Computed example of a mutant assay.
Amino acid sequence: MKKFLPIILIAIIAYGFYNWAVGFQNNAVEFQENAKTSWSNVESAYQRRNDLIGNLVKTVQGAADFEKETLTQVIEARAKATSVNINAGDLTPENMAQFQKAQSGLSGALSKLLVSVERYPDLKANRNFLELQSQLEGTENRINVARDRFNEKVNIYNKLIKKFPGSFLAGIFNFTEMNRYKADAGSEKAPDVNFKF
């Protein structure tokens, strides 16, 4: 019996290590996939905004004397924003920065469009325009919530693979840190508001 004791201990340790490694692998895959799904939700929220902007542009184009340059800027920014897509498995800082830059360009053009509308009382009173504007506001909130949820999922995954002893197994199973969605550069500063009368 004493001859078999070391073999039994080795078998128990090996079995325990195997269960621990399998448990880590399964958790890491689950958390990583949850983060990727959250990224898809971010993209879905941005897609909803792009779809609404298309309808908004058509409604605004109905106002024949509306500023063509502003509309052109929105249309071009929308085209650029929809052309930048990131695979959830390739969320590198460079890809995320490119995606964010395109979305920020669209946000800026859209803001300019909505400010320009103030000079067109008929357009401001248009029921379709008001409904689209309200939906856009709601969509902007959805985008913010989706980005926050994505960051939460990435945080859970990153903590799992960075904390010891998970960090040991993360290297073995090739799990790498995921990047969070970051705010636009300079967004921490309050914008200057200048009212001219």
Rank of each mutant, 00 (worst) to 15 (best):
A77W: 01
A77K: 01
A77E: 02
R78L: 01
R78K: 07
A79S: 11
A79N: 11
K80T: 11
K80C: 02
K80S: 14
A81Q: 00
A81E: 02
A81N: 00
S83L: 06
V84R: 05
N85K: 14
N85S: 12
N85R: 12
I86P: 01
N87Y: 07
N87Q: 14
N87I: 09
A88N: 13
A88K: 15
A88Q: 13
G89P: 10
G89R: 12
G89S: 09
D90C: 03
L91P: 05
T92N: 05
T92D: 02
T92P: 08
T92W: 12
P93V: 04
P93Q: 04
N95R: 06
N95K: 14
N95V: 08
N95I: 03
M96S: 13
M96D: 05
M96P: 07
A97R: 09
Q98P: 01
Q98V: 12
Q98D: 11
F99N: 02
Q100L: 06
Q100W: 01
Q100P: 02
Q100A: 13
K101Q: 15
A102R: 08
A102T: 00
Q103F: 13
Q103A: 03
S104C: 11
S104I: 09
G105I: 04
L106I: 00
S107K: 08
S107Y: 07
G108P: 04
A109M: 04
L110I: 00
L110T: 00
L110H: 02
L110P: 07
S111R: 11
K112H: 14
K112S: 15
K112L: 09
L113K: 02
L113I: 04
L113S: 05
L114F: 06
V115Q: 10
V115S: 12
S116A: 15
V117L: 11
V117E: 06
E118V: 14
R119H: 15
R119M: 12
R119P: 11
Y120Q: 05
Y120N: 08
P121I: 03
D122W: 13
D122V: 07
D122N: 14
D122L: 05
L123P: 09
L123S: 10
